[in-house]
Design a protein around this nucleic acid. Structure first.
Lengths: 268, 268
DNA sequence: AGGCTAAACAGGGA
DNA sequence: CTCCCTGTTTAGCC
């Protein structure tokens, strides 16, 4: 459940499915993913009602009435499943489970490094407070994007992956975003001319919107354990295969501490 | 007046020459080198008596009785001159001058970026409080040196120039220190074996002690405007000339944001 | 594959 | 040839 498209759909489904449910039981099997001692976490949530759920970047926020917020970050490969009362009787593996008063449940599992935090105001949460704009929201305008690039001196891929600059892009979707924009991940940001910046802006929006429309990646699961319909990357993870545009062989390179898959002909 | 040997001798001379003199006039021509508004700086010093003067790294500290400290950093190319009553009548160029009650004077000039700060406790001065040991002091033991290197992952030259690690070495003396130790400036610190670390420790001590004994560099001036007797670098600034040990041509290379002069054969 | 932190590194200004 | 501030990059941890 890694990046913006999957998170975006998940939050949407959670909002439709869980709003107004009341938490009866908070069952935590991995306490270290909490930001509070277990007892405080439980007291803050049990007998409370869920409000709206939204997403920003790779984070999910659920309002807890009257005045708290649940923050969820799935890390790498987390899974969030809604269980109807029948399914809730034999839940799948989970690190944390909420059982609602109607006997339905929400089971959250992480394969690696997820968090579930409970805070008062969202502003007090360091990460949420400093997240950059989410590319499918209205505030991610061309002008805003240009300002984000302005004054940065690092390499292109860094800013795309920096959640404080732009939130929601990870090392999966960034591959095809850069291919769409025909830009090399190691390009220095100040070297991008306006045309290239515009290509990049469009590539971000189109790539992520397309993935949202397809319900996310085929190897990820949504709230109802359904896979997405996004099957095929253009260059991502296709080392050694031909570029779908020019036929050049796609190569895997090291970019800072991540890997990148690029078409050496198309991406400059 | 750049590095430890010159500063060390200067402080020694200031201590012998200026102790117990009382400041009559504080004449500041460049206010921005102060840490205080001019009037407070003057009030803090006028009619006070100088105590002992010491050096640490590239900084000079003079006790001002009863409870203040004058901190002097000469930046690049500063000049500090004692003027006897006769000389004080026609002082050389200065940014700041103290005239003493006996009509002698101290004239301080910077060619670039010097400071003169007045503080209560030394601990409140950020830089002084965090300076590393000075290589010619007793606390710069082999064991202390080894601890400074331990756990550092950067390149060798960086730690030598980091005043928070070891104080007093600048980009001039570091050249021949590295040549003496037969070490390349870009070596990673964790790659140094014990023998190399010992060579380096000895090289630092010997190079700086030798320079102190010679009264500093020939192109620098001491408190009495006398030049030093350190004439000849081994490799420093000798680009294109033969290495005095093996005859290889000395090359100039970029190391982070500084230049280094090395013998590519001897230094590995 | 994610996010946090501390250290290392690079550029610009005084 | 200095030192400091800031932003960026990296390594190691959870």
């Amino acid at each position: 459940m890694p990046e913006l498209p999957e998170i975006w759909n998940l939050a949407q489904q959670m909002n439709e499915t869980l709003s107004n449910k009341t938490i009866a039981i908070v069952d935590v099997r991995q306490e270290k993913c909490l930001n509070l001692p277990l007892d405080l976490f439980q007291q803050g949530l049990e007998n409370r009602t869920l409000g709206t759920t939204t997403a920003k970047g790779k984070w999910v926020f659920t309002k807890i009435s009257p005045d708290q917020n649940l923050l969820l970050n799935l890390g790498m490969g987390g899974l969030v499943l809604y269980l109807d009362p029948e399914q809730a009787k034999k839940p799948p593996r989970y690190r944390l489970k909420f059982v609602f008063s109607d006997r339905s449940a929400l089971a959250i599992d992480f394969s690696w490094f997820g968090y579930v935090h409970l805070v008062g105001s969202l502003a007090e949460h360091a990460m949420k407070a400093s997240l950059g704009p989410s590319p499918l929201e209205e505030d991610f305008t061309w002008d805003r994007f240009r300002q984000i690039l302005a004054g940065r001196k690092g390499i292109l891929k860094s800013v795309l992956l920096d959640q404080h600059a732009i939130s929601g892009i990870g090392n999966v979707y960034v591959q095809d975003i850069l291919f769409r924009a025909r830009l090399h991940p190691l390009r220095k940001i100040p070297s991008l001319d306006e045309g290239e910046q515009r290509r990049l802006y469009q590539a971000i929006r189109q790539e992520l919107q397309n993935a949202v429309d397809l319900g996310g990646l085929i190897y990820e699961r949504d709230l109802f354990n359904h896979p997405g319909r996004f099957q095929q990357f253009q260059v991502g993870y296709h080392e050694g295969k031909p570029c779908p545009v020019c036929g050049s062989i796609i190569v895997k390179i090291r970019t800072s501490s991540t890997s990148s898959y690029i078409c050496p002909t198309c991406q400059t």
